[in-house]
Amino acid sequence: MNVMITGASGGLGRVMVAECAERGYNLFITDINQAGLLSLKQGLERQFKVCVAAKACDLTKAESVDELMSFIDMHGIRFDMLINVAGIDYEGGFLSIDREKIIKIIALNNEATLRITHDILLRRRPGKRFTLIFVSSLASLYPMPLKATYAASKRFLLDFALALRHELKNKDVSVLTLCPGGLVTTKEAIRGISAQGFWGNATTNSLEIVARKTIGYALQGKSLYIPGLLNKILSLLGRLIPRSWAAALIYLRWSKAQVKWLR
């Protein structure tokens, strides 16, 4: 099994990569962070007997992705799975974040994801089943004030993935969308989770379990994975109550948490 993972050297990426290596998959890892990518490749090769290729890429730049693809084509690599982990968020309300940072959220979470997904689907291993994973978020399930751009970008991924799943069904491609709550991926994430107190802790999912189940469910052909019972209940509530109410409620909660968080 040949697997491409984007955003590999981030917190979730590293655990996804380890999960794949544990399963004995060959890995092609990419990330914008070249140094992190090399450390990760080294760590993987020391822990597992798998083949790891690593190449840095800025997925928001078409030329950088073109370069990555010519590298892949030059080596004749073909894939059975793509895990789209690369994504970004900047904390703060819409007007308190720089304009270009706002645009960057969409450029990476959406545009770049489409770019790499398109290219890798064209490089799937012929005659084999292909598995496609998108990392969305619990934030995709409702409009989220103070995280408006991020939540909308994750909503885009969720809707896109559900639609693409049907479009590619008879081409033997299965598409899974992961919608996790908080994940302990960076120091900032830990701070954010702590700032939300009990609820932050309760909606946080264990990285290693999420990684294991995501790959497992994707291989089984499931379409959506929301980790954790509480998160499943929250997502159900999000569907039952009017979207404007959900937004108002979330605003109440986040406005308090963010004051603490950004302090």
Partner: peptide, 11 residues
């Protein structure tokens, strides 16, 4: 660490 977290090497 309360949660499973990794170093850059994935440790």
């Amino acid at each position: 660490r309360s949660w499973y977290t990794t170093s850059e090497e994935g440790y």
